[in-house]
């Protein structure tokens, strides 16, 4: 055992190669969701590839894309292959998309920190023996830990869609790459739906619900853009009402994260954002995602 520890541990420490935030100590439940639901977990790891690859290629080919349809087709083909043969390990974004990570340091750290919360909430919901107040308390403890990292924590005050759609560069990504945009929204839908599935009271019901969400995800992306019928980014309140009711602040924080993903997609795709301004825009909009007053919604939770 000592020999094997000795040999394996160097890779633990070499796997992250940039100044990424670290959740330490990791929650006891960390990555237990994947032990129960490996297919769903591997899809989540594959989504990391999907996001990062499109960002990196938009950046590497900035100003050179003459045929957006062809570009979209190639990147979709590449990502579909990964989704169908997903990784069993979590691959760092800086390995997949080094230029993107270098250009958007605050966005990337913000996403990383939020994605850890996403993961650990799934882990708790999947494994908690208690299905009532103790489980909810545990999730909220994680959220408190998340919020303690103030320089990176996305606000839990819900924002209006103007945050995402009211900027001078807004919607450029979805206009040019409608299918890939729907793929990203389908990822977000899948993540949100998993929370709802994991709130089912019994293990058997949760197993069935997670399988159903996974199958529905495959249906959603089976024939993009037609197969995913989203007019707007999926929101937690609508797609996961029970999760929203139990954890309204976490839900708002996750929705804000998903809006920030759309914002970075638009910055990367828009010709209105000069390359020299991208880094500054990345920092400005990440700060807005953390700011409870920026684009604050006055009818949060309203139907």
């Amino acid at each position: 055992m000592k020999i094997i520890n000795f040999i394996l541990f160097p890779f633990l420490f070499s796997i992250s190669t940039f100044a990424a935030p670290t959740w330490y100590p990791m929650p006891a439940e960390a990555y237990k969701f994947g032990q129960l639901y490996p297919k769903a977990q591997q899809l989540l790891f594959a989504f990391d590839y999907g996001h990062a690859l499109v960002y990196e290629r938009l950046l590497q080919n900035r100003g050179l894309i003459t045929d957006p349809k062809e570009f979209e087709k190639k990147i979709l083909d590449a990502v579909m292959k990964i989704l169908k043969n997903p990784p069993t390990v979590k691959v760092d974004e800086d390995d997949i998309a080094p230029l993107y990570v270098y250009t958007f340091p605050l966005m990337v750290d913000t996403f990383d920190w939020s994605h850890m919360l996403h993961q650990f909430v799934l882990d708790v919901l999947a494994t908690s023996k208690d299905r009532g107040p103790a489980m909810n308390r545990r999730v909220n403890e994680l959220f408190i830990d998340y919020k303690k990292n103030k320089p990176l924590a996305i606000t839990d005050v819900c924002k209006t869609m103007l945050f995402m759609d009211g900027q001078f560069f807004s919607k450029d990504f979805r206009r040019q790459y409608p299918s890939f945009n729907l793929l990203i929204w389908s990822y977000h839908w899948f993540q949100i739906k998993l929370y709802e599935a994991l709130l089912k009271p019994t293990k058997a019901e949760r197993d069935i619900a997670v399988d159903q969400v996974t199958n529905d995800f495959w249906t959603l992306i089976s024939d993009l853009p037609d197969s995913a019928d989203f007019d707007m980014m999926p929101e937690t309140r609508k797609e996961a009402p029970n999760f929203y009711k139990a954890f309204p602040l976490i839900s708002a924080s996750f929705d804000n994260n998903h809006m920030l993903h759309d914002i970075v997609s638009d910055i990367l795709a828009s010709k209105k954002v000069p390359s020299s301004e991208m880094r500054k825009n990345g920092i400005d909009f990440a700060r807005m995602a953390m700011d409870p007053e920026a684009f604050k919604s006055n009818n949060c939770g309203a139907e």
Partner: peptide, 12 residues
């Protein structure tokens, strides 16, 4: 190696 050591943060 020992399953207890395996994690998605460690490469297979």
């Amino acid at each position: 190696s020992d399953k207890k050591l395996l994690s998605p943060l460690l490469p297979e």
